[in-house]
Design a protein around this nucleic acid. Sequence first.
DNA 1: TATTGTTATACTCTATAACTATA
DNA 2: TATAGTTATAGAGTATAACAATA
Lengths: 147, 147
Amino acid sequence: MTTPAPTDALDKVLHLSMLVSADMVRYERESGLTAARIRLLWELAGGPSAQHALAAAIDVTPRNITGLVDGLVASGHVTREAHPTDRRATLVTPTDRGRDAIAELRSGYVDLAQRLFGGMDGARLAGFAEALDDTIRRFSELMEDAG
Amino acid sequence: MTTPAPTDALDKVLHLSMLVSADMVRYERESGLTAARIRLLWELAGGPSAQHALAAAIDVTPRNITGLVDGLVASGHVTREAHPTDRRATLVTPTDRGRDAIAELRSGYVDLAQRLFGGMDGARLAGFAEALDDTIRRFSELMEDAG
DNA sequence: TATTGTTATACTCTATAACTATA
DNA sequence: TATAGTTATAGAGTATAACAATA
């Protein structure tokens, strides 16, 4: 087998990234949610969370969280509840509908993984995972160097 | 070596996708451009193009192209020129500055590919590329089935 | 009639800055 | 004084719909 050029490999990584993005867009249209709101909902999988914690978790400003939570309240996915000990804070809390959406996100993820990799030969999947880890490590080092 | 779970592999693919996105954000800040304008500039690497062709190429509405071109005209990266044969159309044309930006995009891309994959063993890189192709193929099939 | 690009309008995500209530 | 969240303001990307100029 021929050794591909480095740019060929990067082309493929970008192609795969674009497919991942396209799949997200498909899910957005299906669910009526937006990418930012899905990201926030995903953070609520572990239970209710204060807005400042959500801002730190998804790396946006507190102002931005206000808007995202407004949208999710309007669509019935979350409610704002009083924080038990800090009267300044609000606990963003998934409703039944929000929990359903989170569960669907999870099962969709597991299903996609199964369809993509469930049929792949074990040794080959292990090799793929190692190459991905290696690439992730190199990439992370480059990002750290670049600041 | 242990066979990873399908979700482990998908986790790694998503992690790599996030690093690619983060690298794009880094380039956006460096260049003062936005992701959408970079995508449009990239389409101009082959030379001037009419707005309707750009709209089809990057899959946004013609109205959207108007706004993106407005921004790139304001920043001095492109100009609107008369189409030689169709007086309805305008040819979006890179300036010297625009061409410089495109050349930087290209060299940054080649450089990144070299840093990520230039040092990888040939056989391993070939195996990685094959696994990526396989995953891309499966993913594409899934997207087609889902519409 | 169909196509090209624009104006009009609207929604979302994002940010900074100033402010209120609370700790 | 510091923190949590909001209002005020602004810029960018995206979309649909109506429209003018041209093919």
